[in-house]
Design a protein around this nucleic acid. Structure first.
Lengths: 232, 232
DNA sequence: AGCGATTAGAGAGCAGTGCTCTTGACGAAT
DNA sequence: ATTCGTCAAGAGCACTGCTCTCTAATCGCT
C-alpha cells in the first residue's frame, strides 16, 4: 500500500516538477506578468483547470518559482565562495558579488522576481524567507570570519551606529555572528550596495550611460570591501 | 480660430489630465499590473474604447505615469536640496537621500514603476530618460560643487578606477561636470547605494529583519557620504 | 450660414486571462 | 466487486487589452 501510494505521489511530484520547469521557462522569456497557467497547461497538453490540482492558484506557482530562485542564487553564491581560499576574505567577497551579478544577468526575470518590485497583491509567504537568507548567510559568514580572524580593519570614516539599532543588529546577528554593531551596519551598506548595483544594471538604469559594467562593478565592489574593512 | 482650436485642445488636455490622475490613483492602490484602462474608463463614465483616443495603448499611459513620477521625485529632490545651505554639502546629500526615501515610501508603486523590475515587453521610450536624470542631476551637482569648492576629501581606500572607464565617465560627466574619474566612480557607488537601500526597504528585503529603518538609512547614507569624501 | 472634414464617443466583438464548478472516468483499498 | 478518492476535462464567469464600425458632435473654411 505504501508502495502504491508513493507511485501515485511520484507521478504527482513529477508533474509538479514539469509544471515548474515549464513555468520557469515561460518566466525566463515572458517575465512574471506573462506567466500564464493556461499557457503552461497548453504546453503540457493538459487542460487549464487540471493545473489547479497541483497549484491552487497562480500565486502558489509563483511562490514555488521564488523559492527555487532563491535556492539557485544561494547555490551559485555558495559555490563561488567555496572556490576561494578560506583566508582570502576580499577575494571571497568579490567572488560572491560576481556570482550574484552573473546569476542575475543569466536569469534576469528570476532576479526581478526575487529583488524587483513585489507583485502587488502577492504577500511572500514565510516559506520564501527561509530560502531568501541562503545567499545572505554566505556573505555574512565571510564578514564574520574575517572579523574573527582579526583581518577586519574598517577605515575610521563611518560615524558610530545609533544605539537604537542594537536590537536590529540582534536579529541580524544570526547571519553575522559575533561581530560588533558597526561591523553589522557596514555589512548592510555593502549588502545593499551590491544589490543596488546589480538591480540598476538589470533594470535599465545604466542604459545610455554606463557601458563598461563589469569593470565598474568590480571596482565598486572593491570600494565597498574597503569600506567594510576587508584586507588587501 | 486659434481660440477655438485651443478650446478643443483644452478639453482634450483636461481629459488627458483626468485620465492620468485616475490612473495614478489606481496605480497607487492596485500597482502597475492592476492598472486597467477599462477601470479608468469606468470611473470616468466613458466606454473603454474611448480611452484609446487619448492613449493609444496601455503602455503609453504607463509611460505618461513614469514621466510624471520621475518629475515628481525630481521636484521633491530639488526642493530638499534647495532648503539647505549651499556650502553644507554633506547636509545637502543627506537631505536628498531622505527626500528620495520619503517620496518612495509615500508613493511605493510609483517608485516601483521607476526603479523596480521593468514591465516585460515594455521598452522605456526616450522621453522617459530625459525626466529620469532630473534627480540624478541634483545629486551630481552636489558632488561637483563640493569638489569645485575643494571640500571633497575622499579617504584613500578605493583603488584607482580602471582606465577603460574613462569613456563612461565621459558620458556621466554632463551630470557631474569637472570632476576626476575616481570621484565619478565613488559617486556611482553612493548613488547605487542610496537606491539599493531604498529599494530593499520598499521591496520587502528588510522584513522580519530591520525595524529601525530611518535610523539605519541615515547612518548608511552618512557612511556613503564619507566614502564620497563629503566633509564634516 | 452652411458645408466638408475632422474628432469624439458608443457599441460590438476578438482573443486572451485566472479561477470555479460540475461531470465522468480511472485506480486503489475494503 | 464495490465503494471512495483522485484526476482530467469541459463549460462557464468575469475580467483584460485592443480593434473595428457606426453615429454624432464639433471645427475650419468658403
Amino acid at each position: 500500500m505504501n508502495a502504491s501510494r508513493t507511485a501515485r505521489e511520484r507521478v504527482r511530484a513529477e508533474l509538479i516538477r514539469e509544471i515548474t520547469d515549464i513555468a520557469r521557462r515561460q518566466l525566463a522569456t515572458e517575465g512574471a506578468v506573462g506567466l500564464s497557467l493556461r499557457a503552461v497547461a497548453r504546453e503540457m497538453g493538459m487542460v487549464s483547470s487540471a493545473i489547479y490540482r497541483y497549484f491552487p492558484s497562480r500565486d502558489d506557482l509563483l511562490t514555488a518559482l521564488i523559492i527555487d530562485g532563491y535556492n539557485a542564487l544561494g547555490e551559485a553564491v555558495e559555490h563561488a565562495d567555496a572556490a576561494c581560499a578560506r583566508d582570502d576574505f576580499a577575494g571571497r567577497w568579490l567572488a560572491v558579488c560576481r556570482a550574484v551579478r552573473t546569476w542575475a544577468l543569466a536569469h534576469p526575470h528570476e532576479y526581478a522576481l526575487l529583488y524587483g518590485s513585489p507583485v502587488p497583491g502577492y504577500a511572500a509567504p514565510q516559506d520564501t524567507v527561509a530560502a531568501a537568507v541562503r545567499d545572505t548567510a554566505v556573505y555574512g559568514r565571510i564578514v564574520a570570519e574575517a572579523h574573527r580572524a582579526g583581518r577586519l580593519t574598517p577605515p575610521p570614516i563611518c560615524p558610530p551606529p545609533p544605539a537604537i539599532m542594537a536590537e536590529d543588529a540582534e536579529v541580524v546577528r544570526s547571519l553575522i555572528p559575533d561581530v560588533p554593531d558597526d561591523v553589522v551596519t557596514r555589512a548592510i551598506v555593502a549588502w545593499t550596495g551590491l544589490f543596488g548595483m546589480v538591480s540598476f544594471e538589470l533594470f535599465g538604469q545604466f542604459n545610455n550611460t554606463i557601458t563598461h559594467r563589469a569593470e565598474l562593478f568590480d571596482h565598486n565592489m572593491t570600494c565597498l570591501a574597503r569600506l567594510l574593512g576587508l584586507p588587501e
